[in-house]
């Protein structure tokens, strides 16, 4: 499994969220979750996974999808990947 080596993970993740949820301001993204973002539906989740895979050069595993339910949990997932 690829290890995320570059710094600025949070900044890059904000950019990913900005692509999928362009209506969000940069201050809203760190607290984004399906309950706070009306457009966060299944299609948005699929797009988010694709954008994150492209940005970080990783493949999100099936069992990790459940960890991608908010900006914070996605960031935590990426940080864990980086630490491997």
């Amino acid at each position: 499994m690829p290890v995320i080596a570059l710094d600025g993970v949070e900044r890059r993740l904000v950019r990913c969220f900005g692509l999928v949820f362009p209506e969000l301001g940069t201050d809203e993204i760190p607290v984004a979750s399906p309950s706070s973002v009306g457009t966060w539906d299944s299609l948005a989740s699929i797009n988010l996974v694709a954008v994150i895979e492209e940005e970080f050069g990783i493949q999100v595993e099936l069992e990790e999808l459940g960890d991608m339910m908010s900006f914070a949990t996605v960031l935590d997932l990426l940080e864990r990947r980086r630490g491997r």
Partner: peptide, 15 residues
């Protein structure tokens, strides 16, 4: 084209 690039194209056109 990647999904990221495609989404960027669509967002740029929103205006």
């Amino acid at each position: 084209m990647t999904v990221s690039e495609a989404l960027a194209v669509m967002h740029a056109a929103r205006a």
